[in-house]
């Protein structure tokens, strides 16, 4: 009888009604409107609009840079999470709190400060640009910005799992004569991998939709540093609503696919817990 549910508590009709109304008005109807609008194009026209060379270049940059940024985050985010959970060192609490900073900082500010840092006269740019590493107004800048905004997802997804990892298992491995490296490869890594991949996917998803920070750092040059969301804005400014809508529909479908993949990944990662 444990899972008994009751309708004795009042307010179901009211709260549910309001929830559905608000959800429909803010989320469902607008999304439906976007797809509806894109159906005004014939399939051939739609295909032509979303596969122009310029659009293809934009997708390539969006997904390519997102992928690289998510990979960087998967690697360094894992190291950061590991260090924050397992070791003590001066400034640890501060760094731990700061991990959420990219998440709390408005993207426009992030783009502004990053582009300034990597510009030729910036704190980092003054050393990097002479070496040929240009962080501002290049695809590299896009990667830098996407790494910044995606990092909290990689770290924060892994951190609780690492904290709850049973140390006993590692100790058993040690008592059985396994060296540290072997323990890591054979015991720890397989347990963490699903979570690391989930963090990777979350940071990737965040990067694909990112706009604010990129506008500042990329320079938005067609075929070179123009991301897909910027192309939508560009089409809108040309009053090409159908063109903008078609590309937006493509992005939306892709984000839903990523969402489904992440939901699957999370349940997959969860199988090691409990």
């Amino acid at each position: 009888m444990a899972a008994q549910r009751f309708r004795v508590l009042p307010g179901f009709g009211l709260t549910m009604g309001f929830t559905l109304f608000y959800l429909s008005a803010i989320v469902i109807i607008p999304i439906a409107a976007l797809f509806l609008k894109s159906f005004q194009l014939s399939w051939a026209d739609f295909w032509r609009v979303v596969t122009t060379d310029r659009a293809m270049a934009a997708y390539k940059l969006t997904f390519g840079a997102s992928l690289i940024a998510a990979l960087i985050n998967a690697i360094f985010g894992t190291i950061l999470a590991w260090v924050l959970v397992r070791y003590t060192f001066p400034g640890k609490k501060f760094i731990d709190a700061l991990v959420d900073f990219p998440f709390a900082l408005p993207t426009a500010v992030a783009g502004l400060t990053l582009s300034n840092l990597f510009a030729g006269n910036g704190w980092l740019g003054q050393f990097l640009v002479p070496l040929g590493i240009k962080g501002a107004f290049t695809p590299l800048g896009v990667i830098i910005a996407l790494t910044f905004v995606g990092m909290p997802f990689a770290v924060r997804t892994l951190q609780p799992v690492l904290e709850n990892l049973d140390r006993g298992v590692e100790e058993v491995a040690a008592t059985l004569g396994a060296g540290r490296l072997r323990t890591f490869v054979k015991i720890i890594a397989p347990t963490l991998l699903p979570t690391i991949i989930t963090g990777f996917a979350l940071s990737f998803a965040r990067a694909v939709g990112e706009y604010g920070s990129i506008v500042f750092i990329s320079g938005n040059k067609p075929f070179q540093t123009e991301i897909a969301p910027y192309l939508i804005v560009f089409r809108l400014e040309e009053y090409d609503y159908l063109g903008a809508t078609a590309i937006a529909a493509v992005l939306l479908v892709i984000s839903f696919v990523i969402l489904a993949v992440i939901n699957y990944l999370e349940s997959w990662a969860g199988r090691y817990q409990r």
Binding site: P30, I31, A33, L34, A205, V208, G209, E210, Y211, G212, P229, Y230, I232, V233, L236, Y241, A244, T245, A248, L251, L252, S255, F256, I258, L259
Partner: peptide, 12 residues
């Protein structure tokens, strides 16, 4: 999971 730009476009 919706890109902010796409969100803005929906309301336009």
């Amino acid at each position: 999971s919706v890109s902010p730009v796409v969100a803005g476009l929906m309301y336009v």
